[in-house]
Design a protein around this nucleic acid. Sequence first.
RNA 1: GCCGGGAUGGCGGAAUUGGCAGACGCGCUGGACUUAGGAUCCAGUGCCGAAAGGCGUGCAGGUUCAAGUCCUGUUCCCGGCACCA
Length: 733
Amino acid sequence: MKAQMKRLGFGYDWSREVTTCLPDYYKWNQWFFLKLYERDLAYRKKSKVNWCPKCATVLANEQVVNNGHCWRHEDTLVEQRELEQWFVRTTKYADELLRDLDRLPGWPEKVRTMQRNWIGRSEGTLVDFRLDSAAGEAITVFTTRVDTIFGATSVQLAPEHPITQKLADADAGLRVRVDQLIAEQSKAKERGDIGEIEKHGVNTGNFAMNPYNGERVPIWVANYILMDYGTGAIMSVPAHDERDYEFAKKYGIEIRQVIVPSDGSDRNVRPAQSDGLPFTTLDGKLINSGEFTRLSCEEAIKQMSAFAEQRGVGKATVTFRLKDWGISRQRYWGTPIPMLYCEKDGIVPVPEKDLPVILPDNVDITLTGGSPLGRVAEYLNARCPKCGGPAKRETDTMDTFVDSSWYFYRYTDAHNNHAPFDSKIAQYWFGDRGIDQYIGGVEHAILHLLYSRFWTKFMRDLGLIKNDEPVERLFTQGMVIKSGAKMSKSLGNVVSPDEMVAYFGADAARLYSLFAAPPDRDLDWQETGIEGIRRFLGRVYAFFSQVPVESAANAPGYSVGDLTPNARAVLRKLHQTIARISEDFKGRWHFNTSVAALMELLNTCTAAPELFRAGDDAAPAAFCAHVQRTFVLLLAPFAPYLAHELWETIGEKENLLKAPWPKFDPELAKEEEIEIPVQVNGKLRGKIVVAPGTPEEEIFAKALADPNVQSFIAGKQIVKKIYTGKLVSIVVR
RNA sequence: GCCGGGAUGGCGGAAUUGGCAGACGCGCUGGACUUAGGAUCCAGUGCCGAAAGGCGUGCAGGUUCAAGUCCUGUUCCCGGCACCA
């Protein structure tokens, strides 16, 4: 990989290379982990986790893609397993991660939207529905539409909800039904089609009280209620929620309308006209809602949340879709999590001075199931740093996204033995706004980019850095598609550039990949067309071989005024090309047009062979040398090998990489005469050629005199004449 | 269902700000050179038409002297999210 990059002539500073699987890097992962743990940002909990059978390890939520498939193995369904795992409290930063998206104008809107959706902030109200049972227990529901609560005609629980479980424990019949619902949900989750399964549920026969009107409503358990969102319990308002409506229709639960359109129309007022229900927009006002009747929805939400708080039956709240980041992996390759389990002292962190916890090298990684590290006795058995007694090491390793969450800071100070990096050095490179320009595939829009944003905020709070965000400007490359499938390391259908480099050369491979499509677009990789690139490079080489070798430095000067029209045309094209390529480098990065511009420049040069022919004095040697030299400089970023060779050919002694980028001279780029298209009634009818700055009247006169234009205006009345500086438009009737 | 992005010749793509649609390259056609051509060079190449001219940027409308570009509606493709309460 490294050799490939070098062969392709990429200019990386390899002295800053970091290798995340070596202890001098992962030591700092462990150090960060201890800091997370100290700050209660890392914790252990038992929970349902995503398990990829092919990876034989756990995956974070973000790493489950495409309806429940593994992000590494898109053909493999992820299973749900109950495991004790380490989590990082990304949710603690949920608000900030969401808010700061608005401060990233240099990010594609697409990525920001994806992150916003992923974080999924939702404002709502928690309301307690007290159970009939003596203990004063209550079901807490989460709703974004507390204004509809007078229309609540049942409470719906997730099958896994603790109260469901409690009710089921007391009712064997219910237990059977509930277990069915759980099985069904987890299957659907594995298949990834939860959301498409038909809504159904079971009435528990119990009741809970709506604190707003004292009404007792039946408690149901339903398969469309998810335990891991909100509180796992909802109030069901069939008149104003589509899902509740569907459910109520099916089971004959009462549908009670409490919102009507605020425009005064009577649509949807009578429940008998049930076609119009559910009415779900916020643009309405309340009816049948006690003291809140007649309020607008928005006002009602405010007042009714406040009401809940005053009565101690609920409060306004915010929930997130974002979950904590599960970082435990049952794999060998990864950073060992620096934790110990002591019989006496429980969970004990490895002291900082004992870092790094080194990954043992005598591990049999061919076995599957469970953490490989658990099978290495020398690794597993340790001493408790507190009591000195026997302790077991944590055998899970960290998600590799931990490595990539901060590696770019390590680049600033890659060989630091005392800290992940020196704050001052990081500050020098990153300033307050982070990486000037980051490049990556869209596939990392929520994984890597969310984790590294979190990590940056965490490091800022540790006092290591000052910037709030890791990346100021983000550019998302398109994916490379190969016969219909995206090309990626994990899919293993990567086209190696080696063959292309061997056959056509590194320059051709570089130019080809740039020329094929702009970088933000997906590229369907097919190798037709590289011949054209090779031809182009051959023509460049030929162009330089036929020209007299003359160093620009040695040649006497020349005056632009003395140049032949052809030579001036070349000079003009040269400067237009400088402008175009410089523009492409400024952030648009459409290098496909840069390459096209170089081709055009060469075409212009070779179209005037007399200028560059040995023994022909159609142009001064200094002019030729200037054109050649500039051409090489423009070519260099794209085809560095050929450029270096040509640089020597033309007698340059200085290092090409140190030569300044050519300067654009707008005077030299300016056309001496411009061609102006003439339209009659919006259709192109002729073209006139004038000098720049020709007055408008003269242009119109010339335009009207054009014979073809004449034939279209003859006998008609001119209604309007427009000259924009680029084009003449004549309207006749 | 919701949120993004896209659709331009036979193909990849260009048109950066409402101003000549198709730059540049591939492919194709014809020609030159050649023992040879899968090398190189020259010419042509959006569609219809002999020409004049007409038509043409997914589809249907609209605004404008002028629309690939702006507005309304719509179809299809790609990506993301999804019983999110």
